[in-house]
Design a protein around this nucleic acid. Structure first.
Lengths: 184, 184
DNA sequence: TTTAACATTTCACCTATGTTAAAAAACAGA
DNA sequence: TCTGTTTTTTAACATAGGTGAAATGTTAAA
């Protein structure tokens, strides 16, 4: 759930980005990046909804992150460290993205100092978003986490499955169902 | 718990950093950055141990992060976004740091493209460390989180108070004491 | 329109962690 | 070394959320 603030990039770089990136479409339920393989792309979502996910020790599917219109998503650790990913990414809806490969992005970082800066600022945004999630998991109840999620990202309620949302919140789908029943 | 890999910076920039930064010492229990105020410095720890912390809704002190030798710490959201901090930072031991102000760091980012790049890489490391913490809180039991912490950062066991560690793990100090009793 | 697959809710019971309070242990200053 | 303070442990009880299973609801293909 990281929105990109394009006003931080100048037009020249924005143009270069649009040339280097390619448009890709995915169908609902299609795998966008496979767990176990190195993730070579960062995706800018134009239309649709994606989630990254992994399997916990007991084999349960856990949603790690969502991304919809104007947001970015990748398997960050794999993409930036060039190693196999423990995260998979899938399209939850029919989705259109623009994808930039690691090599292309690296080239552009070399070429445009201002993009390197933008990259640092985006990474700072991501870090704070992830940090906020950690703090919520650290001190808020499941119910509070749920209400906060729906408040800041209302359409997730209609667009994602209960089990996906529950996994993201770190609870079971039964617990989330119970929370909904208690508070609606 | 973010170690800095200095091999990613060239000597010229490293030298400039050491000139622009200043050495500061703090006594055990001294406040290094106050919650409610904008945090103007990023700290590179030379000696000692620090923690960042906040108060949850019920007023309970919760440790957010630790930093010891060769690590960095700041109130990231405040420092990078230039806004009042919800985090405080305190020295847990007598501590020596090198501090760089936001203005100085900004100047240096403008001057050295390679530092901007380094900043992006460091931010990526931080993001992944925070992401790992979030995942642990999402799917691991308190006991697993405790053992992982002690495994990856053994001296925290001797150097930090039980209550600080418990807060970091997202549990009460009584629960952590119980976990220790069960497994020692 | 029926049926099969999938998603959500409900329920009874269980367990990890929280809460409150007190005892024990460790530590720091005189 | 003694003493007051802080930290850690222990214990009894409370509760949020997990588990497994079944019931109900929804969707979409045939």
């Amino acid at each position: 759930m990281i929105k990109i603030d394009k006003s931080l990039i100048n037009n020249e770089v924005l143009h270069a980005l649009s040339i280097k990136s390619k448009k890709v479409t995915f169908q609902r339920n299609e795998i966008v990046a496979e767990a176990g393989k190195t993730c070579n792309y960062i995706f800018f979502v134009r239309k649709g909804l994606l989630r990254s996910f992994y399997y916990d020790r007991k084999g349960k599917d856990v949603t790690n992150w969502f991304a919809s219109e104007e947001m970015i998503i990748t398997a960050a650790q794999s993409f930036f460290k060039r190693e196999p990913s423990f995260l998979g990414i899938e399209a939850i809806e029919d989705t259109v993205v623009r994808a930039i490969s690691y090599e292309q992005l690296e080239e552009m970082f070399q070429e445009y100092h201002s993009l390197e800066r933008f990259g640092r600022l985006v990474m700072t945004e991501i870090m704070m978003a992830v940090g906020k999630k950690a703090i919520y998991l650290q001190v808020k109840s499941a119910e509070e986490r749920y209400h906060e999620l729906i408040k800041t990202y209302p359409d997730i309620f209609y667009r994602a499955k209960l089990g996906h949302i529950a996994g993201y919140l770190g609870i079971t789908q039964q617990s989330l169902s119970r929370i909904r029943a208690n508070t609606t």
